[in-house]
Amino acid sequence: MSVKNDALADNKHSLFELRTPRIKLDGDIVLPNSTRQMFDEAIGAMRFHKTIYTDWGFGEVDPAGRNMILNLYGPPGTGKTLAAEALAGTLGCQFYHVGIAELESKFVGDTAKNISAAFKAASSNGALLFFDEADTLLGARLSSVTQGIDNEINAMRSTLLIELERFEGVVVFATNFAKNYDSAFVSRIRYHIEFKLPDLDGRKQLFTKLLVNKVPLAEEREVIIDRSAMESDGLSGREIRTVLRTAFPRALVACAATNQSSPVVSWEHIQSAIADIRSSNENVGKKSSSLVIDSTRIESSRKMLGINN
């Protein structure tokens, strides 16, 4: 079905791209056992919905339980976005990846309308609805309203609450700042799934998956994988991928510079790439306090609505 030709007369569906998942939870992504168990429980709840709500009669006392709302939270680079896509692949449905750029509007009231349009698009196509950077959307509603922008933020969040109540599909939120969520949203989310930095076994699985077999190595593959996993403590899955993105061309450049007959990736190339990631984490950017983060996200909410103070 063409998103642009859908039923909305105002053509709001054209704001969002209907995507087909490329991956599934099994075999395509590396998750800690505790995280994967939570996904399995959520999937089980969806698959046994009829048994619970119809056969067992739970729908009589829980009429709002027709949807499934999940929250994926944890540090950057731990696989939340990939997991949302993989969940759609496992469920056999398409998905919408909705970010702030698709929702924001410079026109008063249009951000709330765009949120409603996203839910309508997902409902029309039976698609999973994924909201990235969700803390901007799910932040606390403002109790002391002093200007028009405050009314707009409250209207946006009220619209989201209403849509969540009546939506009958799957909604996934992802955030690096789960502490910023308003309690009204927290209570409506059925599964809060934590994403942690990979442990030693997780890092080994990541290097095993990413260090593909065709890459020529100077040492035994298992030796390099074990060393890499040990050396990369504290790095996220995204950073581990960046390590190899850096190490591979480094090996090729070294080969060309020394006139070697064929390039090979050595442990030294990977080790130096890990050191570069650690150095950039230490020296590039700044580590914000929670107070700075909160003020930044509040300001982001204001900008999202396209109205300046």
Rank of each mutant, 00 (worst) to 15 (best):
Q37I: 04
N309H: 08
P32N: 10
E268M: 11
R47M: 09
N176T: 11
I307Y: 08
A251G: 01
A101N: 08
T111S: 01
S266E: 13
E102G: 00
G27S: 02
L200E: 09
G92H: 03
G65E: 10
I225G: 06
L103C: 06
S158W: 04
G44R: 09
P63K: 03
V61W: 15
I100P: 03
N71Q: 11
L31N: 10
A121R: 02
G306S: 05
L128V: 05
N125W: 02
K214H: 14
Q94I: 05
P263T: 09
V215P: 10
I162M: 09
N180E: 11
L15D: 10
P198Q: 06
G109Q: 01
T78I: 11
H13Q: 04
L164A: 10
K24W: 11
H49L: 07
G285Q: 06
Q260C: 05
K214A: 13
R66N: 12
H192T: 09
I23F: 01
L164R: 03
A42F: 01
M304V: 02
I270E: 06
Q271P: 12
P21I: 00
A84R: 00
K286M: 12
S105R: 05
V171T: 06
L87M: 06
A247P: 11
T51P: 13
V253N: 03
M304D: 09
K204P: 15
A218N: 13
E41A: 13
G139N: 05
T78V: 11
N67H: 03
G27W: 04
I100F: 02
K80P: 03
T51F: 12
I162A: 14
N125H: 11
F248E: 14
G139W: 03
H269L: 04
A9G: 13
V61M: 15
A134P: 07
A42E: 01
D10E: 14
D294H: 14
A218T: 02
D132A: 00
G202W: 06
S116F: 00
T54G: 12
H269R: 01
G57Q: 07
A86K: 00
A112P: 13
R238P: 14
M68Q: 06
D26R: 14
A247V: 04
A251W: 03
D10T: 01
P263I: 05
G44H: 09
V284S: 15
L305T: 15
N151L: 12
T54N: 12
R157M: 07
S143P: 02
Q205W: 03
L305I: 14
G99N: 02
A121Y: 07
K24N: 09
V284C: 13
A127W: 04
D40F: 03
N11M: 13
F39S: 05
C255E: 15
E194D: 15
F39K: 06
S2L: 10
T246V: 11
L129Q: 04
I224Q: 08
G126T: 02
G306I: 01
